[in-house]
Design a protein around this nucleic acid. Structure first.
Length: 593
RNA sequence: GGUCCCGUAGUUCAAUGGAUAGAAUAGAAGUUUCCUAAACUUUAGAUGCAGGUUCGAUUCCUGCCGGGACCA
């Protein structure tokens, strides 16, 4: 039974019998807590059709419902708002329906398939705070789609080729002395990142030497021995030179091992990896075909362009005059390859920062021009940058927040605060460590996911390690509290029951049932907007409402057994839904904390 | 120069065109014989500026101011 639908039908009936016309789309909204009732019908738009003023219209509909409705118990009118209160019996039935549903809110597989790309790092630098937002977002959106019945393929493209990795290789070769992750005790990605920084330092030193010898800055930057080595390595790599390829393989191997550890700690995973080294030659053929079809055009110097001025954009180069690809060319090829690999997907979602909005607009336009039907279904899940209180993260200024370090800090803070509260006396080592991780990582994920993805956000390290208030641990704590209730109920041999008897409900109980009934709709909203923030805020609202319920009603007092059983059942379901919602964010909820 | 995004309590975030703009933090004041006080209750505090559209605008439109990104 869908409450909203039921109300809609009843009001539609009421309206047409009262005014002899079909009503327009009804605005039924949740109510502000200051007003009595649970649903409100906005009657301003109806006034034109009913030919009465909004207040009268509301009054008439209210009276009609009072006399005829199965669900509305009473009403009140404020200005043009018809506030409806539903009977407690109805609320009990709503809850019964929810409680009896085994996997409440989860949609059975629909046969639809979707691909979600996220992470997609370069292999010359370790992952940082920005990647955390990216990974959490992408992973969560994938989970949300899974929950509404899609088969989801999680992928990333690893930018493992190009001048950047050659720079690390060049620096390692000249000054690395054969250092390895094992010999240095550094994580692989950190080690390779270290040599990327060393390259930069060597380059700077050599440039100033050359400038001192009278070279222009521009020339000097190209002619340092270290830069020449890097460029030489890139060329040799493209010629498949054995030695260079072998070093490239070794160093990328270190990076992957390092990334793997970071992904594990983050709790994200992938179904398939694409490597740029394997896909960067794709796309060129497609572009040439496009020239034949007349979709693209050639300039005198032989370069290939697409003209997007009709779409309000510029001309964009697709192949340079020497025939080499640009990023766009590769992305065209990769997109087509993916649809070949997974012919049943109806859409690709690219989780990439909003600085690439233009790039994806162009990419999707080009794919459409090439005649690919699925192009208009592709979606750039664009998210805002994460700023620090000191401003933007800049790798050159060393203000980048490292992903591993940050996660470690969060876990340590969780441990510290848990110990201060004296909560873990009974917990043994392995459980305690797991709990600190659950709380620390949960706090981080919630912090990054509760904000609308599209918006730029501020990351204040001091505030993020806060475990009170609008945070993940608040929700986790509520779950732990519910589990405690259920343990107690069990010890009292109280079985959860959803009997629909005559007992009236308290306001906090109705609020909870109302929130529970909203879960499927919120899930769909989240999918539609690609926004885990919708889920995060829902989980928070539910937890908040439960705490209020918990503090205002002594669950185990009173001698009416069915009332106690009902409250236990309500608690159990709230716990389940909290668990389910948090799982969509990749946040675990503990049994106790 | 062109395109796009963003301006909400001191701060970080909310608000399908709807009522008295919600939370959280920081501030003030309370609540532990009782199920977990990482909680709860009370209190104070905000829509950049100027117009327009309408019954009604934080939301839509125009201009300006301020912040950011991208394209050449």
């Amino acid at each position: 039974m869908n409450l909203d639908q039921l109300l809609r039908e009843e009001i539609t009936n009421a309206f047409s019998s009262l005014f002899d016309v079909e009503p327009p789309h009804l605005q039924i909204q949740p109510i502000n807590p200051e007003f009595e009732g649970s649903h409100t019908l906005v009657c301003f738009p109806l006034a034109k059709i009913s030919k009465k003023n909004p207040q009268e219209t509301a009054q008439l509909i209210g009276e009609y419902l009072n006399a005829n409705s199965k669900v509305v118990s009473h009403f009140n009118v404020v200005k043009g708002f018809l506030n409806l209160s539903l009977g407690h019996q109805i609320w009990r039935e709503v809850f019964k329906a929810i409680a009896s549903e085994e996997d409440y809110g989860v949609v059975k597989p629909t046969g639809k398939e979707i691909m979600v790309e996220y992470s997609s790092p370069n292999t010359n630098k370790p992952l940082h705070l920005g990647h955390l937002r990216n990974n959490f977002l992408g992973w969560s959106v994938a989970s949300i789609y899974q929950a509404i019945g899609y088969e989801v393929h999680k992928v990333q493209i690893i930018n493992d080729r190009g001048i950047h990795i050659c720079k690390s290789m060049a620096a390692w070769k000249t000054s690395g002395n054969g250092e390895t992750p094992e010999s240095s005790g550094l994580k692989g990605d950190k080690l390779v990142g270290k040599y990327y920084v060393i390259f930069d330092q060597m380059q700077k030193a050599q440039v100033s030497d050359l400038i001192a010898k009278g070279r222009s800055k521009e020339d000097a930057e190209k002619e340092t021995s270290i830069m020449k080595l890097a460029i030489d390595m890139l060329q040799k790599w493209e010629q498949k030179d054995e030695e260079v390829v072998s070093l490239w393989r070794t160093m990328n191997g270190w990076v992957y091992a390092g990334f793997e550890a970071t992904y594990k700690q983050m709790g994200v995973d992938f179904d398939k990896l694409y490597f740029e080294s394997e896909t960067y030659l794709l796309g060129k053929e497609e572009v040439l075909k496009g020239v034949e079809k007349g979709v693209f055009f050639k300039k005198e110097d032989g370069s290939v362009w697409v003209d997007l001025t009709e779409d309000g954009l510029d001309q964009k180069v697709l192949l340079r005059s020497d025939g080499t690809s640009v990023y766009m060319t590769q992305d065209i090829g990769t997109a087509i390859l993916r649809f070949r690999d997974f012919p049943k997907i109806s859409r690709q979602v690219y989780t990439v920062g909003n600085e690439q909005e233009y790039h994806f607009k162009v990419l999707f336009l080009i794919l459409a021009k090439l005649g690919y039907q699925w192009a208009k279904e592709c979606y750039h899940l664009s998210y805002g940058m994460v700023d620090l209180p000191s401003g933007k993260m800049k790798s050159r200024e060393g203000t980048v927040v490292d992903a591993d370090d940050l996660m470690q800090e969060m876990i340590e803070e969780a441990e510290k605060q848990t110990k201060e509260l004296g909560k873990i006396e009974e917990l043994k080592e392995p459980e305690a460590i797991e709990l600190f991780e659950t709380i620390g990582i949960g706090a981080l994920k919630f912090y990054l996911l509760k904000v609308d993805p599209k918006k730029r956000m501020m990351f204040d390290p001091n505030e993020s390690i806060q475990l009170q208030g609008h945070t993940g641990p608040f929700v986790q704590y509520t779950h732990a509290r519910i589990r405690a209730i259920l343990r107690k109920a069990e010890s009292m041999s109280l079985k959860p029951a959803d009997k629909t008897d005559d007992n009236s409900l308290f306001e906090p109980e109705i609020t909870l049932i109302n929130l529970l009934s909203a879960y499927p709709a919120r899930l769909h909203d989240a999918a539609k907007d690609y926004s885990p923030a919708v889920i995060a805020n829902y989980a928070y609202d539910l937890a908040k409402a439960y705490n209020h319920f918990y503090q205002s009603i002594p669950i185990f007092s009173g001698d009416d057994a069915s009332q106690l059983e009902f409250r236990v059942a309500l608690s159990q379901k709230v716990g389940e839904v909290i668990n389910k919602a948090m799982a969509l964010l990749g946040i675990r909820v503990p049994e106790r904390m």
